[in-house]
Each structure stands twice: as structure tokens, then as C-alpha cells.
Design a protein around this nucleic acid. Structure first.
Lengths: 231, 231, 231, 231
DNA sequence: AATGAATGAGCCTTCATTCAT
DNA sequence: CATGAATGAAGGCTCATTCAT
């Protein structure tokens, strides 16, 4: 299973918010032990819930299954989340925040704009397309209309930031003469569109026709930057 | 509401299969009356179900609500559909088939490839983006993984055909020298991607930021065909 | 199918109660035609309903299935019977009455009592055990508690008469010295018990162990009359 | 009502399978308390279901009514039984098994065969005829054809064993010269038939004519063993 | 804190009954 | 008379939520 690392990662995030009492060493140890276990449990629930929601959608997911998968009792879920709906809403936040955090801590912008964007695309390819995170995108597309708060959050934290970042890069590319099409800066969505399509394609149509996302993205960048001279 | 035309269209489709007896005018009237009423009811159910499924997703949709919205009793639904699942599956077919039929009956390919594609895009803009049909696309993306038969159908009837048609156009464009990027023929998805993004954007993010889909598509075509000299 | 004769027989019974108008020959023919067809329909319904009730029991039988089996529309049933319950009640009457009638028109009591009873048993063997009529007995046992009127009717028309007839025969046998056990006259049920057991056995346990009802009944009569000297 | 003892008996059976931890008295008390409560609930459901099924038959019985009668919520039933059908099937097992167990633990075969059989009959009279257990027999006769597994179970556990036991007794009786009719060993059903008839009679016709089952069985045994000299 | 048995509202589906044609 | 589409009450089953232990 590839779950352990992910779980651990999330657990560390969950733990981040916990308090660190300064009492006696014993008490402290006990407490932090408890807190640690609670955090682990919470992380396990988050992990399990994510998997279930992605697989079945919000409405068709049973708390029973989440509990079983997380290895906790059903009641335990209610110690961490108010109810199913708010669990879903928090979940999306919990899973997305670290992703955004990592992406925000970008490598310093060295090299050509195309290099930057290719680095980006490579990351996206590896970390999103065809992974559980890609399914999360599809989940948000699926449930967004029924969970405005989720759509809001996703727009605010991911979409608007991503669009802004892409726009900045495009403008830089235009300024540097790498990109000819000036209007592209008005629609960074065009830059991102094939990547999104790749995400959706992997979820729905791999069975019918596999898609070489990496190659497709390369072609798309050729379109924008002009064909690359093979170095 | 945009319902009236859709409903009428569907009703006429449903009616298409009915027989037109040549017996006495009375009998004919009676029969066609009944058949017509049945078709109307069926159309109303299809209409209502579509709305509910789009609004709430499959699992969260109640047959009770569909019945209420369609103005029929709950039991009536079961005169037309075996159960909720097959209703959903048939629904997608029922709504998509006429669209495909219409698109297949294409205008004769005159003019430049760009003109053709712009005509296409214009149609898509008017008939899909921001309409209930666009929501249907989102619904399929959302429920596809849980309804393989729906995903299969959609891939077979819409996606694969659309990809093939786009590829043919792209190849024509390359042959005619309208399109420079030769690799584009391998990924017609790139041509379509911004349109799909527009569909999803309208469903999820219009509230946050409106998107001028028409203009965006124009920019995208500029990218592919080179900037249009303003005539 | 062995249904046709039974159906015809019942139909004639059903017809018995119909009125014979004396109007013009034409009208009369038309009317009696109609009446005949109505009677046929009714008979078909009775036949079909019996089969279904026997197979599935009262509650699990669907009027839809009865109608289909009888070759009529569901609504037609309501032209002949008030509702499902009274249909069931009437049905039992309709099917049982001719049986009782036939049995009442007994052959003249000639020969030994044992001969008489053996004739009886032979009849029962042929006409009840392992036949649909046997299943009807099981049906009455099954539904009796929920249909007191059916149990009442069955007791009055079949059980009490049968018991009385058996008692008369037993008393005759005692008087003639064929039967030694005088107390048997107080419990004619003992005489009938193995035959009833055979009926039930055929319905429930033939699969597990076949039962030679004829031989068993012979042994039982040997018990009552003493072993028969093989003539 | 005769429910209390039966309920208690069943509860004790259900409890039999529970573990008796040797840990702290507290924990033990708690656990056994819970287990006991669960067993009680289960017993109450069994009890209530039995009553309802006997009164209304399988199809006409509502789980709602069972729940109400058992004093539990509808959902609770599903903690103990998979669904209505398997509840019915298990029920028959649950109620019959202890009876069979008790009967299998027979009194040592002392005295004449007639005495043995009379003891048997006495038991049957007291414990089956006219009791809820008798009604259960009628229920099995009624629903057997629709529940082959029930009929199978009943044949295997009760009928075939009973027949075998009776046959052994009859053969003993023949060997000892108590029974004259040698063929009886081939049809132990004859020995049992009046008892079964008494069971059914009590369910259906007591209202119309009471039946002194004990006296009838005595007469039947006189028939088989010869009249008893009054001691 | 953690558990999981118990609850009961809610939903899909069936089917007896009605009634316009 | 006959039909069968339409109805809607009723019932089996699920599952989010609660709470005693």
C-alpha cells in the first residue's frame, strides 16, 4: 500500500495545530501521547474518508465504511467532525492546503519561462494526473455545485491563485518575447486546459483509450512557445 | 427557464416511435391522444429527472422529487423506467442522442478550416456552454466512475466521435497550411480543451469570476491558426 | 396442459347462474354470446387465480400475474370480484362446491364397508393426493387462520360432512362386525388422518422421500379392518 | 400469555454462546450485562416475529409490527437478521432446535413399547398440540413450498428423525409381540398421523368443534396395540 | 476518549385499486 | 364491457446520528 506515507504526511499537518503543554514530564508525555494518538486517528479518518469520497462520491459514501477503513469506531468520527457534510468540507481543505503550501514555496524563477512552465507541468504530471489528487479534482467538480463552500474554497485557494500565477508567467513570457500571442495573458485557462483535460481523461476514459499526458502537454507548449529546437 | 424548448424537443423524439394507424379518425385520434399523453409524461419525467440529477447528483436525487417536478405519481416513473439506475443511464442516452444526431448532420465543409472550427465553436458556445447540456457534461464527469455504462456510452457516442472529427479537421488544416503545428493531429484534445474548461467553469465558478468563453475560444484559435487579420 | 377440462368444468358452473333472456333470436344470441364469453373469462380468472394462490399463497400473489395468466386485463378482474380478499374467499367456494357435489352423489352403498372405504380412498388417491386439489387443501390450512370465512366454509362443506360420512361408515362397519374397535366411531379423524398426511407429504417432502400413499392407506385399513385375506 | 417462559428459554439459549471473562468483576458485569441485553433483545425479536408470522403468515407480516411488539426499533432487527427471509428461516431453526435437543435426550426405554409411545404422545399433547409450537408446525406446512430451506431443515431435523424413531419403536413392538400389524413398520407416518391432524385441527377448527386429542390418541393406540385391559 | 448498539427518518420499489377511453 | 395507464399508500431496508457503557 502507498497509503502510509500520505497518511503520515497528513498526520503531521493535523498535529501541527495541537497544543504542547509544559506540565510535568510524565503528564506531558502522557498528554502528548494521547494527542499524538488522537492526531493519528484523525489522520487515518481523513485518509479513509478521502478514499471513500473519491471512490463513491459524497452521498453514496457510508460513514461505516470510512470508520472501518480508518480502523476506528463509527462514533469516533464524531469526535473529530461535526457531521458528514462538514467532514467533507473540512476534508477538502485539509488535503488541499499542504499542496498549495508546497506549490507556493516555488523554486526560484530561473531559466526561461518555458522551462519554468515545463517544470510546473512535470510536477503536475507526477503529482496530480492519474493520482488520487487528480481524482480529488474530479470530486470537486462533481460535488462543487452541492457544496458551495467547497467550490468557494477551491476557487479561492487553488484556482484563482493558479490563474494568477499562470498569468504572471505568461506576461513574463510575453515580455521576454518567448510568447507571441499577447491575448493569452487574458486567458491563462488556455494554458492549463490540456492539463485539466488530462486529469479528467485519466479518471474516465483510460479504459477506452490511454492518453500520453506528458507528450500532449509538450505539444501544447510547442503551440504556445513555438516548436522547441531539439537540444 | 430554458425548459420549454428542450421538453418539446424530447417529446417529439419520444413520439417519433409511435405508430400512426389508418383506421377511423376517431380511433386514430384516441390512440394518438393516448400515445401522445404517454410521450408527454415520459418527456416530463425525463426533463424533471435531468434537472434533479444535475442539481443533486445521482445518489442524492429522490424519485419523489422527480415525480413531483414532472407532475406525475411516483409509481408512474416505473411505467417508463426499470429503476433509478437504469433511468439515469437511459436519461443520458435520451438527452445525448439527438444532440449527436444533429451534430452528425453537419453543414457541408466549405470555407477555411478555421471557419469550420469557428462555426463548430459557435454552436458549442450557444448550445452547450452555460446550458443544461453543459451541466450534463459535468454530471457525466461526476458520475462516470460509478456508472461505467454511462462513461462507455459517452465515450463511444460523443468523445471518440468528437476526437475523430477534430482530428480530421486538424489534418485538413495542416494539409492546407492553415495549421503549422503538425503534432496537434495527435492530440485533438488540445483543440477541445478550452471549450471543456469553459463548460466546467460555467458550472462551478461563474459566481466567482465570469468567463467570456467566446473570446477565450477566439484567442485559442489564434494560437493554433495564427492571429487572424481583422477583415 | 391439463387445464382446459378443469376450466371448462368451472365455466359451466359459473354459467349456471346466468340469466337467459327471451328477446329476439338475434339479441338472444348476442346476449348469450356475451354471457358465454363473460363466463369463460370468469372461469379463466378463477383457474388462473387458483394456480397463483396455490403457488404463492394469498399475500404473495399479484393480481397482475393472475390477469396475465388468465389472459385478461387487470381491470377485468374487478368486474367479477370485489377485491382480492373476496376473490380468494369466493374462489375456494367455487372450486370446492363441485367436488362436494360430486362426492355427495355417492355410488350406492353395496359391498362390504371396507370395499366402500377403499373405493373412497382410491378416489381420494387419484383426485386429491398429489394434485392441485391437494394443494388447495394445503392452501386452506395455510390461509385458514387469516380467512375465517374460508375456514368456516371449508369446515361446514367439507370437513363436517366428511367426518359425518366417515362416522356413518364406521358405525356400519362396527354393526356388521367388520370393525372391532368401537371407539373409532368417536374419532373418524383417525380413519382420514393418513390420507391427509399423504396430501401434506406430497406438497412438502416428496423431494426428500417419496411416499407410496396407496400402499400406506392399505396398511392403515388393514389395521382397522384386520389383515385382508388375499382373495 | 404463554410468552414469558418461552422468551426466557430462548434467551438462555442465546446467552449460552457468550463468553464469561474472568477479568475484573466490573468488566465482567458490564460485558455480560451488554451481552445479556443483546440476547434479551434478540429473544424478544424472535418471540415477536414468531407470533406475527404465525398469526399473519410470512408475506403479510410487517417488520414494523415485529419491532413494535418486540419493543425495539425497526433498524435493530437488522442487527440480528440479514433480512426478512433469512429471519424467517433462522426463526424456525431457533425455535425447533431446542425442542429436538430435548426430545433427543429421551427417557431411558423402560417398560412396554406402548408405554413408551404413550409417554411420547403425552409429551406431544402437552408441548405441541394447541400450543404455539403447534402453530409453528402449521406455519411450516403453510410456507414450506415457498421456503425450501425451511422445509429441508424441518424434514432433516424433525420429520426424518421422528420417522426413524417411530420406526424403531414399532419394530421393537413387533418383535415383542405388542404390535400385530407387521407392515406398520414401513409407514410410521400412520402412527403419527392422528397427532398431526390434532395439531392442524386445533389451529383451524377448534372454534367449530373441539377435539379431545388425548382421547383420540388413546383410541388410535388401542387400534394399533389392541384394546388396553383397564388396570 | 472511544466504542458500537440502537434508533428512526427517509427512500426505493411494489402492487391493489381506480377510471378515462 | 374491457382495458391498462395512473395512482399513492405501504413496506423493506439503509444509514447518519446518538448515547450508555
Amino acid at each position: 500500500m502507498t497509503k502510509k506515507p500520505a497518511r503520515a504526511a497528513i498526520a503531521s499537518v493535523a498535529r501541527a495545530g495541537s497544543h504542547a503543554p509544559e506540565a510535568g514530564a510524565d503528564a506531558e508525555a502522557r498528554v502528548s501521547n494521547r494527542a499524538a494518538r488522537a492526531a493519528e486517528r484523525r489522520a487515518a479518518i481523513v485518509e479513509a474518508a478521502m478514499d471513500e469520497f473519491i471512490t463513491r462520491g459524497f452521498a453514496a459514501t457510508r460513514l461505516d465504511d470510512i470508520a472501518k477503513r480508518a480502523g476506528v469506531a463509527k462514533g469516533t468520527i464524531y469526535l473529530h467532525f461535526k457531521d458528514k457534510e462538514s467532514m467533507f468540507e473540512e476534508l477538502v481543505r485539509i488535503v488541499i492546503v499542504p499542496v498549495v503550501t508546497r506549490l507556493t514555496a516555488l523554486p526560484p524563477p530561473v531559466g526561461s519561462v518555458r522551462d519554468l512552465i515545463e517544470a510546473f507541468a512535470g510536477n503536475f504530471l507526477k503529482e496530480v494526473i492519474g493520482t488520487r489528487r487528480g481524482d480529488l479534482v474530479r470530486l470537486i467538480v462533481a460535488e462543487g455545485p452541492r457544496f458551495p463552500s467547497v467550490a468557494d474554497f477551491y476557487y479561492r485557494e487553488v484556482v484563482s491563485r493558479g490563474i494568477a500565477a499562470m498569468r504572471a508567467l505568461i506576461e513574463l513570457g510575453i515580455a521576454r518575447g518567448e510568447i507571441r500571442e499577447k491575448d493569452l495573458a487574458r486567458y491563462p485557462q488556455i494554458l492549463v486546459a490540456p492539463a485539466m483535460i488530462a486529469v479528467i481523461w485519466q479518471s474516465l476514459f483510460v479504459r477506452h483509450a490511454p492518453l500520453d499526458a506528458q507528450d500532449m502537454l509538450r505539444v501544447h507548449l510547442d503551440l504556445i512557445f513555438g516548436e522547441r529546437r531539439t537540444t
